[in-house]
Amino acid sequence: MTVNYKSVFDIIGPIMIGPSSSHTAGACAIGRAANSIFQETPTDIVVHYYESFAQTHKGHGTDYAIISGILGFEPDDSRVPYAIGLARDQGINITFIEEPEDSPINHPNTAIIELTNSKDGKKVTVAGCSIGGGTIEIRGIKMNGFDIKPKGPLPILLVPGSEVDQQNVTDQLTALTKVNEKKQYQSAKGDLFEYDLDRRLKPEEVKELAKNNTNLVYL
């Protein structure tokens, strides 16, 4: 069964800078997911807000929280409130848009992040929602010509490569945890597999997986 809250520390925690777990810590987590997917520093950040996020992002510090995540900060990093200034100092262009319509991924706390690097033309889009207490879901990712639509709950592992290439990934994952769902995506650049995992992996376990699959994304 896929549940969102897999750890007692999702409930007692996270330790964070106030004021809102869903609009600050959760926003930071959506930014961190985008950072993990993009894997480089963007030149342009565009954030689209929907519903509750559109109405209350200013009051909750959602703007700096999301940028802090894109810069790779943890939610209790003392630099979180200063993230926008820090990003602009690096020459990053930032735009926030309050969208009037309902969330395209059906959740009141929705942010869709577009990251672009104008130097190499790289672009990704990440659609995330903050479901409470700092926990998030990722329901849409556009990268490398793939249009990935996960169910939502983390952790999610994305591994490019053919079905044959995936055998060692499957073997390694089976030894670690249950795979709740495995989905295949195709683009002009080849195949990509999405694995929805039953438990969060430890950093050293992700490192081990990355040894044979340097382009994997772990969310």
Partner: peptide, 21 residues
């Protein structure tokens, strides 16, 4: 009040309800 002043708290289960526990 620490949460509203953007101080450090532990969300239990959320930041808005972090004072109760």
């Amino acid at each position: 009040e620490v949460n509203s002043s953007m101080g450090v708290i532990c969300a239990t289960p959320t930041a808005g309800s972090s004072g109760t526990l």
